[in-house]
Simulated scan of single mutants.
Amino acid sequence: MRRRLLSLLPSLGLAALLSPGAQAQPAFPDHPITMIVAYAAGGGTDTAARTLARSMEKGLGQTVVVVNRPGAAGEIGWAELARSKPDGYTIGFINTPTIVTVPIERQARFQLEDFVPIANIVDDPGGIWVLPDSPWRSLKELVEAAKKEPGTIGYGTTGIGSDDHLAMLALERQTGARFLHIPFAGSSQVRTALFSKNLPVAVVNMGEGIADARQGLVRPLAQLGTRRWEATPDVPTAREQGFDVVEGSMRGVAAPAGVPQPVLERLAKAVHGAVDDPDFRQMATQQSLPLRFLGPDAFKTELLALREHYAKLWAMHPWKE
Rank of each mutant, 00 (worst) to 15 (best):
F195G: 13
R214V: 04
A24H: 05
N120I: 04
G216W: 02
P150K: 12
Q107D: 15
L267S: 05
K85Q: 15
R219A: 08
P236T: 04
V259S: 00
G126L: 05
G258Y: 01
I76E: 12
P103G: 07
F115R: 04
P290G: 07
L60W: 07
L9Y: 07
L194R: 03
V245Q: 00
R228T: 10
I182C: 03
Q174T: 09
A255V: 06
P296C: 07
L131R: 15
G216H: 03
G176N: 09
T301H: 11
R83P: 10
A108G: 09
R281A: 08
L12W: 10
Y89D: 06
P132F: 04
A40W: 05
V130H: 07
V259A: 01
A82V: 06
N68I: 03
G21T: 13
G151L: 08
G242M: 03
E302C: 05
I118S: 02
L194M: 09
A108L: 12
L267E: 04
A146T: 05
V116W: 02
S249R: 00
R83V: 10
K269V: 01
F243T: 07
M35N: 06
L221R: 06
Y89K: 12
A311K: 13
L8I: 11
Q215K: 14
A315G: 13
D133G: 08
Q223N: 07
K147W: 07
P29Q: 05
A231H: 10
R228E: 05
I33R: 03
M316T: 14
K58R: 15
Q174N: 14
P278F: 11
E75H: 07
R307P: 00
K85M: 13
A185I: 09
E321M: 09
Y39C: 12
